[in-house]
Design a protein around this nucleic acid. Sequence first.
DNA 1: TTGCTTAGCGCC
DNA 2: AAAGGGCGCTAAGCAA
Length: 544
Amino acid sequence: MDRVLLRRRGDAVAVHEGDGTVTEVPADGLPALVRARAGVRWVWDDTTRWYPALLAAGVRVERCTDLRLCAAVLRRSPHAARGPAEDPGWAALEPVTAGDPALFDLADPADALDPVAEDRRQQAVLAASPQRARLGLLLAAESSGALAAAEMTHTGLPWRADVHDRLLTGLVGPRPAAGLRPPVLEALAGEVRVALGTPDLNPDSPAVLLRALQTAGLPVEDTRSWTLERFEHPVVAPLLEYKRLARLLAANGWSWLDTWARGGRFRPVYLPGGVVTGRWASSGGGALSVPVQVRPAAVADDGWCLVVADVAQLEPRVLAGMSADTALADAARSADLYAGMVDAGVVATRAEAKVGVLGALYGGTRGESGRMVPRLARRYPRAIGLVEEAARAGERGAVVSTLLGRGSPVPGAAWAERDADLGEAPEPGGRDSDRARRAWGRFTRNFVVQGTGAEWALCWLADLRNRLWRLGEERLGEERLEERPHLAFFLHDEVVVHTPAELAADVATEVRAAAATAGRLLFGTFPVDFPLDVAVVRSWADAG
DNA sequence: TTGCTTAGCGCC
DNA sequence: AAAGGGCGCTAAGCAA
């Protein structure tokens, strides 16, 4: 397969062929060039600096190498062999978003970097890695994720502002003028003020509210919902309702609609690799925490459907695979892993299974969770052993890694930060640093599983992206991405595909096939299943 | 005015 | 019911 590197040269683009030939094309000729060379792996500094313009010109890229993301993976990976030093400019390079001044800035820091040298360096590091295949897969998956992210921002998630508006109006009354509360919230605020005897209270201020609650005789130290729920007092019911609605309005109310859901699409900005574990982050619009409450507004276009798919219990399944724990994999043969554990007689109830597994993944030590973990350890020694070892490594200050080789950060400044985060007064005898070490151990324990889960999801997404493209080619013959079945949303272990209705059943098949591919890519022939819940729906809210 | 932290809560 | 890991976002509140 051809690898062709693109490098910006003022208003032109230098095209570096694999054989060393370099040609130049004007920047506005790039879409035609890329379109004409299907199958090439395009190598570039940063997908966010190249791909949006290509997509806007109607050109889809099949595969790429994103040097910025790959450099970030290699920088941390314990499987990356030492090689020539990396230009620190790569670590400082920030992704850009549409409308970002950096896009049009003549002084884009990306232009000061040498992508040819960096590509050569990365190839050498990879070639020398003792885990070349896994690390190579990770780099390919990470780069493919960058393409999928740009495409999802380009196509967006279909979003019906009228449905969203009716939903808000039904809950809080008509949209008020700027700076005012809608009627239902104003009424609830009034009830709260009466119940507390504070006519001027602003319930949006936690500090003021806390003092008012204490003055009214409630022995509370904070104003969290689950704290308030414990008390029988006339203020509790209206205050909880106020907080629930005020939260919705602040996070996903009318101003969210104005800002993020224009033109019938919600276009979040995804940040692949934005979380240390390898999960994506997002920027703007709160894409990764769209409340269930507003999901009815995500409605497919006329004649189209949403295919919503999520993996049940991704992380324990990933743990079974990466630890080659056949007993846990047996439980995972069931569509409900927790039910599988009950059937195997490991625990008595599904609730015990769940709390035990979460305790093992997160490092729970107290309560029911702490009591369950030893029982799981007897039954699943390899799986529990793997996360326990990751926790011990973290406590020692060692680096841990995911299955494909993403490395955890070294506990340096972060270690001290966590100390401060705990907010505890320093104690004599080093107990404070013990606490920090255990906290870091919980982080590394979760890192290996959350990170490998993210790798599975990336492989799933990458394979599905190609399957959907081919499906559109074969069945529709449409040229443009947005006219074919396409990824519309991605959230850790869930995808939403927007598809012409007549292809929905085929899309469901491809979604499952891609999950099977991801399992094989990560775990080979080890028998661990990744069953999906797949729903073909008009609205996102109708799934699950 | 801008920029930062904190409290609180939404998602996985 | 909360705990244990990872995030982003908003309003409030404060500092500069």
